[in-house]
Design a binder for these strands. Sequence first.
DNA 1: CCGTAGGTAGAACGATCGTTCTTTCTCTTG
DNA 2: CAAGAGAAAGAACGATCGTTCTACCTACGG
Lengths: 207, 207
Amino acid sequence: MSSTHDAAYGSTMAEQTPPAPGPPRSAARDRLLRTASALFYAEGVRAVGVDRVVAEASVTRATFYRHFAGKEALVVAYLQAVDDATRSRAGQQPDDPAEVASWLRRLTSQIGDELCRPGFRGCAFINAAAEYPDPASPVRVAVREHREWLQGTATAALARTGHPDPRAAGGRWMTLRDGAMVGAYLGDVEQARTTLRAGVEDLLAGR
Amino acid sequence: MSSTHDAAYGSTMAEQTPPAPGPPRSAARDRLLRTASALFYAEGVRAVGVDRVVAEASVTRATFYRHFAGKEALVVAYLQAVDDATRSRAGQQPDDPAEVASWLRRLTSQIGDELCRPGFRGCAFINAAAEYPDPASPVRVAVREHREWLQGTATAALARTGHPDPRAAGGRWMTLRDGAMVGAYLGDVEQARTTLRAGVEDLLAGR
DNA sequence: CCGTAGGTAGAACGATCGTTCTTTCTCTTG
DNA sequence: CAAGAGAAAGAACGATCGTTCTACCTACGG
């Protein structure tokens, strides 16, 4: 849940602040992003107005617009925060190819655990994309980047386990993951979890 | 996006139903629902206002509120129209158990074709659910009913093909279907199509 | 023939949308 | 100490949200 690179904002003059780099990290901005993330995920993006975020974060509108160009930028920051959290939770693949299979199992079971969490409301990226039809919008770009990373990671892992067709297998893994996310939100959580786990075992068995 | 009963409203003569059950079928109502369906699907539900629907359907607000209790009722009608279309397109399962496998193949390939259609923007129900967090809302009820019917149908079909574990297989079919819908919208259409088809073949082979 | 229902046309409601503005206060830092 | 950035507080912008209302027109079945 941390922002990454927000360099080059307003400073036209010498930006040589060693301790505080520009406007990125402040208590107010942090509260804003954290509050917005919770609200956007739980209730949908369009359903949550700036006023609501600002009020719930105990921050004024002026402060909000100092830290974010607008609502859309906040939405992108929200998705990037989820992306960051997902990537750091996944960690990096082990060097030893013999450990890759169990690494992918762990990555998958992390998703399985996510499905069971109390406030689970599906995939943040799938849900956001439902509200942003324009594929060129910054929101959709953020969605695409996350998904390409995720599928690429799974594909690479499956390749290293020696799967005969890693590209197709990565696509299957992603389908399994998406289906589980949707199924757990709109249907039976336990069934989604089981299907996901069994599917990954098939993949790891080279099937 | 075709509604099932397109040819049923123009009749000036044979319309001898005096009590007119609840929501009457009129040209204005039909235009309203058709326009709303296209807009809701293409741009998202919250993104499309009543004014917009009313203007694009060449109907006044007063007429709209005569036919629908409010926007939410229109959303539910939209989903029910998609549900109707899906059910009628699927048809009913053949009596002969030997034909069930090819029937399920056809149902699945209908979905595969849907993914390739020009304006495809994912599953109407998944997208709508993303915008309606409350599981008790009429919209979510409509979503649930559609999904339960769909999964139930697939499960029944797989049972009749003699699959050893039809319940799990039906869940897998649904996961495949959801994953393909999401993947085709947010990723590679062809890969989604291929994964879906291959997955169903596995299911039909009893795997 | 008249009554009524469904239609058009358009004004209006309060609420909320995202955004911008001015003003004042409180810190930190040179 | 002085300077300046960050934040608080709140007014205000035009636009749009979903909804309700009155008024008039038209078609049709009793």
